[in-house]
Computed example of a mutant assay.
Amino acid sequence: MAEHTLGYGVIGAGGISRFAHLPNLARNPRARLVAIADIDPAKARRAAEDFDIPYWYDDYHELLANPEVEAVSVTTWPAAHAEPVIAAAAAGKHVLCEKPIATSLEDADAMVEAADRAGVRFTMGYQHRFGTGLPLVKQLLGEGVIGRPMGMTQVGVGPSAHGVPWFLQKQYSGGGVLIDWGIYTAHTILWLMGPVASVYATSEIFRSEVMVRDQLVTGIDVEDTVMATMRFANGAMGSWYAAWAVAAAHGGMTLDGSDGSIITGRDNSGLSVFSNTFSEPAHLHGWRQLKTVEPVLADLHYRKLAHLIDSVLDDRPLQLTGADGRDALELVLAIYRSAETGRPVSLPLARSAVPQSV
């Protein structure tokens, strides 16, 4: 008997859908692309034709009513994530939501609660979790290689090539570099270091005009640079600098503890590790390089989709959940709040302190 495949629908036929979701679902032998929906019917129809999808709709509710659809990816713009995720959960569909989970904590909480109430699996589009380097860092920390964590620094900067103008419009994106690129980092920081107790941050819009596909976008109202100082619940300290208005791309993370340090490199440069806990003779103590080879980006996207598909078909717990996406958003919103007020902000955020639109 042939193995059951998961009937899959995609809500949103824009760039991330066509690059990351549709081609990787089409090549996954355990998935069956059933339907595509987009508010632009021409986009939905074109995607259906290009990927041989039987059904296309201009209303995602019709996609959710299709009994062949068992799981969905939500790939709309960030401010439009909550409604289809909640509706999908209510319809009994498993969900992968692209980042960020939402632009308000109220929406994020409602999404997580809807999935829990319906008993469906809900995961996030954090493809970096399915590489090789970060899981190795997590393993080393768990093994106590650097001892008690005391400090963390994170730098992630580079020139950003925006594909569509809405990236630079707060009403659609929810913010700039911090919620777009930085939402991955927020999740990574929490995954590796644990909860953040307080943050103090500043932000700036250094670039007021940007060319997007030969269109000059002016009146930009989202930040391109953020600097945050964090205090973790475990007592460790951290700093985080993110920017997408700079000329050169560079960055990485350092983790320092009572017995050693870990430094992550860019791309495939691997990890540098120092530890006093190594058992070799003293003359071998010192920095050592651990080579890690990261999959190409398309394969990382394949893995994040396979994570949901395999979880459903094999009845295995998710390693990355909607709640993780909610917590990453909370950290980002706390940083925004601190930058806005000029004051430290404590976490978890009180509902009254959460900005409805950042």
Rank of each mutant, 00 (worst) to 15 (best):
Y302G: 00
Y302P: 00
R303W: 04
R303V: 01
R303A: 14
R303F: 14
K304V: 15
L305C: 10
A306G: 03
A306Y: 01
H307D: 05
L308Y: 06
L308P: 05
I309T: 14
D310I: 02
D310G: 10
D310V: 10
D310H: 09
S311P: 08
S311W: 06
V312C: 08
L313Y: 04
D314G: 05
D314M: 08
D314V: 07
D314T: 03
D314H: 12
D315R: 13
R316V: 08
R316Y: 03
P317Y: 07
P317Q: 10
L318H: 06
Q319W: 06
Q319C: 02
L320V: 15
T321P: 11
G322K: 05
G322D: 10
A323G: 11
A323D: 15
A323F: 06
D324P: 09
G325Y: 13
G325Q: 11
G325P: 13
R326W: 11
R326Y: 12
D327G: 03
L329K: 12
E330I: 12
E330F: 11
L331F: 03
V332M: 09
V332Q: 01
V332H: 03
V332Y: 01
I335F: 00
Y336M: 04
Y336V: 00
Y336I: 00
Y336A: 02
Y336C: 03
R337T: 14
R337F: 00
R337Y: 03
S338E: 03
S338Y: 08
A339K: 03
A339V: 00
E340T: 11
E340G: 02
E340C: 01
T341L: 13
T341A: 09
T341Y: 02
